[in-house]
Amino acid sequence: MTPVQLYVLAGVLLCGLGFAGFLLTSHLLRKLMAFNIMGSGTFLLLVGLAQPNNTPDPVPQALVLTGIVVALAATALALVLMRRWYHLSGRTDLQGGPGD
């Protein structure tokens, strides 16, 4: 197995795990973590796929750095909303609660 295949396999596995977790759990925090795992898998694919002649390509590294910043911002926003939602409704998922 070449390193590229290993990267791709790990990336696809992480994406699949994250996606399944995202769909199957209802706890907001778990869902958010599943999203982050899926994101890591995507970044791994982005870096792993682009290795012509087994030399790392700097462009996807820069892209992933940007991607991590975006994922961090999204995670922070989700945490803030989630905390406030829990404070108001006392629930950790989106079913039920006031006004549903």
């Binding site: 999203f35 939602w85 108001l88 989106l94």
Partner: peptide, 25 residues
Amino acid sequence: GEAPALRAALRYLYAALLGSLGYLL
């Protein structure tokens, strides 16, 4: 900042994040 708006925002955020990851893949 009311509860129904927060629920709508969280649903929207999760859908948007999943959609972006599909595109990023």
